[in-house]
Design a protein around this nucleic acid. Structure first.
Lengths: 345, 345
DNA sequence: TTGTAAGCGTTATCAC
DNA sequence: GTGATAACGCTTACAA
């Protein structure tokens, strides 16, 4: 970012025109402010000859547009989030935008820190994809960012005053629980996610609702979890001790389901013969477990594309879209089957 | 990025000092240029009162430093790369740096495009983590970026004039092949990676060397692949047709190994009883396949940290480190076992 | 259709 | 220790 890189002044001189003319043709504002074709050609030629590269920092300072968006995720190394980010990047790069990643580890402190830094870092938009908290931390930061003209869009339910791509967590979980019920299961445990997370709570609510509608109680069936693989493993002893024994386990996300699978195998329990296990999310590795995981599919990448498209539209001056949403679907693989001694009802 | 955000001018006015004084205390150059403690306090107080946030775009323009690095990866949704990026982010964020992700899909065209865009986008450093090609495309772009003072560091072998964190792909592959040999295998197939990739070639070379040293020929044992899961599945019929039948398969990366596992299962072949399968990389999901994958572990996250530390050091004026490297280790799980009819030699 | 000139918010170079 | 003032490279009214 230093040396003798050519500026529009050099081009202006070389092409024998003014600074503004150069700026006009080079910044694409041509469409708005017509330029003589011959002038234009000269400018372009000089730019090419001098190997000109615009200085985005200068553009940003002058125009207020940075051509960059930041994405807050829980953890970029978590496939759930990296899929979303990939979707975002797809449409961002197609529109000459760069994407910054910010992993918050679901830590409200880190989340606020990043938000604070976004206060000085030049981005045109911020995508809150880390998942919402029931009690949001960065409210003030978000407000002041919005006030400054930054477009902010969220993914999943947030307690924040921003447009959001809704994921049908509750409906998806209900459907999955109904699927298990239909298979004949009556004792279905649920491994919950982190307490304050809206995503986790919505999935739990969907599970509860399905049970309630089937006239079943969830008492003693909801196990604490935190979305980690270890949590899925940890509950296994508890599962085995339950009486009457649980016949199916619904984990609030795939990672826990996969951990549970591992724990069950270690305990010598065979899935789905002795117990069914299902997850939520359908991360890529869910198809490579044994048995492959029955789960709720979220169109992660498409969500990323959708949220970035929304950011771009708002940046283009359009009002926030009213209803952004991503439908979940059941993906039946082989980790769930009817219970062995399936006495219905 | 717009509205009425406070500037150092506002602070100067409010604190009754000059612009330069404000800049000095706010940009941390204090250590170099002493400031009166009382003046300093007044400035800080005003800054806080006005809820001041530095404008990084302006700083970048004036100082030439952007506090951002870009990372070129094959695909951010590939766990191999997202792990590396996470490592980079860990040390970046601890040092007030932001990280931009650029997925190139291993397409030289996209790679050059991104490099070209980096020519105008303000970043202090660029990390080439997408893997090297035997014939590099973006050489000119890299040169001109370096000339402009951007620090560029690579991961894995590159044909580019930049310091690089070496991954012991060849040694790791040799070790793994030796392990298979030691188990008693003599007919070991290798699923290769994309032809032009140094990473793929080095692993192949390691495999070849081990066979050669054992007095074995690799003729007809090297199968074409491209690092995708599908490639791993695709070779299965070929594997089964081989005579004498191959007893072990070494995939050049985990994804292909996992695909191979799936293909084998579909064909009713049991691993490792009938055939052993091993991979390279040790991505997180490698431990959740059935059987869990024996593979070569690369300290992905640590590599990310290391490469970002190197970038920071060079930005701090230190010369490139001579030997950056990441050792691979064998991780024995359960997908490889002695061949069934293991007649040694 | 093109040119002039005033910013954009900081840092940096000199003086004092 | 502190203060003027000139960059930094570009966009954008406003004129012509």
């Amino acid at each position: 970012m230093a040396k003798g890189r050519a500026t529009i002044a050099d081009i202006a001189r070389s092409a024998g025109v003014s600074l503004s003319t150069v700026s006009r043709v080079l910044s694409g504002r041509e469409s708005v402010i017509p330029i003589g074709p011959e002038t234009r050609a000269r400018v372009l030629a000089s730019a090419a000859a001098l190997n000109y590269r615009p200085n985005q920092a200068a553009r940003t300072l002058a125009s207020g547009r940075s051509q960059a968006v930041a994405v807050l995720v829980h953890d970029i190394s978590d496939p759930y989030f990296s899929e979303i980010v990939r979707g975002i990047e797809d449409v961002a790069s197609a529109n000459q935008y760069m994407v910054l990643v910010c992993s918050t580890d679901r830590d409200p402190v880190r989340e606020r820190e990043y938000l604070l830094r976004m206060g000085s870092f030049p981005t045109d938009g911020i995508i809150l994809a880390a998942g919402g908290f029931e009690e949001e931390a960065g409210l003030d930061e978000v407000r002041s960012l919005i006030e400054r003209g930054v477009v902010i869009v969220g993914v999943a339910r947030h307690g924040l005053p921003i447009p959001t791509v809704r994921i049908s967590n509750e409906e998806g979980a209900r459907e999955m629980a109904e699927h298990l019920l239909q298979l004949g299961h009556r004792r279905i445990a649920f491994i919950a996610g982190p307490p304050g997370l809206t995503t986790a709570n919505d999935r739990l609510a969907g599970y509860r609702q399905a049970l309630r509608e089937a006239g079943l109680s969830a008492d003693g069936l909801v196990l604490a979890g935190d979305f980690t693989r270890e949590a899925g493993q940890r509950v296994v002893p508890h599962l085995l001790r339950s009486t009457p024994r649980v016949t199916a386990v619904f984990a609030a996300n795939d990672k826990m389901a996969i951990g549970c699978l591992a724990g069950l195998r270690a305990a010598g329990i065979v899935v789905p013969d002795e117990v069914s296990v299902v997850g939520f999310g359908d991360v890529p590795s869910a198809q490579d477990t044994e048995p492959p995981l029955t789960t709720v599919t979220i169109p992660l990448r498409e969500i990323g594309r959708q949220v970035m498209r929304e950011v771009l539209q708002q940046l283009g001056g359009q009002p926030p879209s009213a209803a952004l949403s991503a439908p979940t679907t059941l993906t039946i693989r082989r980790s769930a089957a009817p219970p062995r001694s399936g006495k219905p009802g």
